[in-house]
Amino acid sequence: MDIFLQQTVNALALGGTYALLALGLAVVFSIMGLINFAHGELMTIAGYVLMYCGIAGLSFVIAVPLALLASVVAAVLMERIAFRPVRNGSGATMLVTSFAVAMILQVLFQNLISTRSQPVLLPAMLSDSVHIMGMVIGVNKLAAIIATVVMLVFLDWFMKHQKTGIAMRAAAEDFAVARLMGIRANTVIAGAFALSGLLAGVAAVLWVSQRASVDPLMGFMPVLKAFIAAILGGLGSLRGAVAGGFLLGFIEIYLSAFLPPEMQEFREPIGLGIVVLVLLFRPNGLIPSATLKAEKV
């Protein structure tokens, strides 16, 4: 039972990180219909900011807000420079644009910073662990769970009580009608990107605090997980993204924890098999978006 509880805490921490990542994709998708595969590069940018702050001797307390700021600014710039010109293009055009942005950024990181991964200095406290009710919980796990809860509460408040948030929800439901009601498209879309940048930044801090290094290709794996989580939860639905992220985290941790040793090698195919199974029964995801009426063929 102890082990089960312990693994559940692990799953909560990982699932929370996935939820933040999937939310970042979903916020933009719900409004623009774009799956931003350059989302991972926003994380890489935040990671490099943490690295440079460490080199400059800045405290982690200052480095984290700077990293978040950098990824928000980068997200807004990404929208302004790369996605605004193709905003009225087809879904495929925007998708390919996002791949291009991701690749260009990766090559820039490789050429301007380093091909090798760079160490990020982290406060020693993050490697510690605390004992709670007989369980050993790493401080970075605890931080992940707290950060996820804080971000989810913030997002809920922002979407329900903030003008931009309400406008974003309206735009997600019907962009054309929302614009007729006087909502500015540029503001809403830039807001969505800024929000996704913030989510990427928080996820990056959690991600980097585990791996202690950044490299130019770091963003690929998280964006892939976020994509799976977003599809699992229901593409374009914010609640779905959170549910999908947590479910993916639970699937991964429980398989890794409780699959018999001789089956461990097949952990990932089994995990993805479960995802497919869920989608067979709920083809639009766990909590589908009300407006994206994908049909079962």
């Binding site: 082990i3 692990n10 991600w207 794996m221 991964e252 090698e265």
Partner: peptide, 22 residues
């Protein structure tokens, strides 16, 4: 005493760590 496998680029090792600790 035993062995575990992971995939390259795997972010989270907490499940393996918990198992070894136990």
């Amino acid at each position: 005493l035993g062995q575990d496998t992971h995939s390259i680029g795997q972010q989270d090792f907490s499940a393996i760590a918990t198992r070894i600790a136990a």
